[in-house]
Every structure is written in C-alpha cells, then in structure tokens.
C-alpha cells in the first residue's frame, strides 16, 4: 500500500520519534500546558511517570497478544487439518459472533467473573484478540494452493513439514495482517481497561475526565493515539518487507487480506 520513503520523510521514523519525545519529554511541555489551560492548578499528570505508564500499557498488550497468537494460531491450524475439520464451522461461528461483540463489553463482562485489576484486562484482551488471528490463520492457510501442497507431499514431506515449511510461510502475510488487527484493537482496549483498575495510558484520560482536567486527557490521548499509529506503521512496514521478500505470493492472499481487514473494528 505505502512505499517505503527514505530519510526524514519516513512516517514511521518521525511519528516514532515524536512518540519517544513525548514519552520522555512530557514534563518539559509543562509551560505549554500551563499556557493552554490557565485555569488548571496542575497541568501535568504526575501520579505515575509516562515511561512507566507506557511500559505497563505495552506489558498488558504484549502478554495478551502473545497468548492470543499462540491460541489463535493453534486453533486455526487445528481446524484446517483433516483431523479437526469437523470443528471448523463451529470455530468460524464463534469468531463471527464474537466480533459483533464490542471489545469494551468483553472487558466489562470479565469483571464480574474475575474481579477488578489487571487480570480481567489481560483475559478480555487475549480472548478478543484471538478472533482476528484465528480468522487470518484459516484464511492464510486456505490461500495456499492445493497444487503447492501436493508438490510438497510429492517431495516426501511429512504433514508437519508441509505445515511448517510450506503452509505457514505462505500464510504469513495474511497471518501478520490478522495479528496487526489484533494488536491495534488491544492497544485501544487496554486504554479503556483503566476503568476496571488496570494501570495503563488510559489512566490519565480517566482521571482527567472525572476531575475535569483537560490537560491530563490530552496527554493520555496523545500517547495512546501515537502508540497505536506507530505500531500500525511498523506492521505496515513488516508486511511490505514480507511481500517484497517473496515474488510468489499466492494469488488469493491479497483477497484474504482484504477480508480480514474489513472485519476490523475499533475498540
């Protein structure tokens, strides 16, 4: 989709730079926030440092995404094997149904079952993050032409090697698209998770909203937005690299990618 631009015009480079500057340099902007919001006594969020909030936020996203990737990939691979194909319809039903649920609803439902704190956030994010990954794993493996699979078998590969050396590498671009969707949704849902007691970049926003401190809201919102945008750009770069690295992407892959992207929703 996007060409990789070199040097200063590279959007990933400068948005990443701005993100880092804001994470570590937010206190330096105190005079600016004081100027913008003269009515506020405390124009800078000081309950936790911004690097600590970013680290906590990324920790939740990384842990839940790791679980979602392992389970989602496992489920996707399982239902595309001969032994598991009975369950494919069921898994697809669950995925389609689950994606009509808003992520914030999954988060809220997790609280009565688990309690407040970081755990409901982790579990809700991992569960919701599963859905696009399962979907893209199935779509990716489906996009591998049967002839390629036949050829691999003809070379004497056993089913495990066909999966590992043929199907998964060819499914990778579609798979990465699914992981991208999952991670971006999780970054947003993790911000909302501050309402169930997890410490994330959403905390300044929630504290600011309840205390009418627009400066806090702005600081949290800027960082969450940039974090999501930089992550998305990084995935975009990864996908471009992958596609350039292989000349023989199966023809069905772009279509499958488009379908996984349409199903994407924003937390």
């Amino acid at each position: 989709m996007s060409r990789t631009r070199a040097g200063w015009a590279d959007p990933l480079l400068w948005s990443g730079g701005v993100l880092l500057l804001l994470i570590f340099g937010m206190p330096l902007l105190t005079p600016l926030f004081r100027e913008l919001f003269p009515e506020l006594d405390r124009p800078l969020y000081l309950q936790e440092t911004f690097p600590a909030l970013v680290a906590a936020h990324l920790g939740i996203v990384a842990a839940s995404s790791a679980v979602a990737i392992v389970l989602g990939l496992g489920a996707g691979v399982l239902v595309t094997r001969a032994a598991g194909k009975d369950f494919r319809g069921l898994v697809e039903t669950v995925v389609a149904m689950g994606q009509t649920f808003p992520p914030v609803a999954v988060l809220a439902v997790a609280v009565p079952l688990i309690g407040f704190g970081v755990w409901p956030a982790l579990i809700a994010l991992a569960l919701y993050g599963l859905l696009p990954i399962v979907q893209s794993t199935i779509a990716g493996i489906e996009s591998v032409p049967e002839s390629v699979r036949e050829a691999a078998r003809g070379l004497g590969m056993n089913p495990l090697r066909v999966l590992w050396q043929v199907e998964l590498p060819l499914a990778l671009p579609v798979l990465i698209a699914g992981i991208r969707t999952s991670v971006i949704i999780n970054i947003g849902t993790a911000a909302i998770a501050s309402t169930v007691g997890a410490k994330t970049l959403g905390s300044p926003i929630i504290v600011g909203l309840s205390g009418f401190n627009t400066a806090y809201i702005l600081q949290g919102a800027l960082l969450v937005a940039l974090l999501a945008i930089v992550t998305d750009l990084a995935f975009d770069r990864l996908q471009t690299r992958l596609q350039r690295g292989r000349a023989t992407v199966p023809a069905a892959a772009p279509i499958a990618r488009a379908t996984t992207q349409t199903a994407r929703s924003t937390p």
Binding site: G188, L218, V224, A228
Partner: peptide, 24 residues
C-alpha cells in the same frame, strides 16, 4: 492512497483517545 491513508490513521486511533483529543 491519500483518502484511505487518512481514514486508516483515524481508524487506528483508539476511541478513548479520539474522544479525548476532540475535547480541547
């Protein structure tokens, strides 16, 4: 490219952040 680029960036921004950014 520019249209879908801009719309894609908006879609990427988490809702709680977009609400927050619009307030000021």
């Amino acid at each position: 490219p520019p249209l879908f680029g801009v719309l894609n960036v908006i879609q990427t921004v988490p809702s709680i952040a977009l609400f927050g950014l619009l307030i000021a």
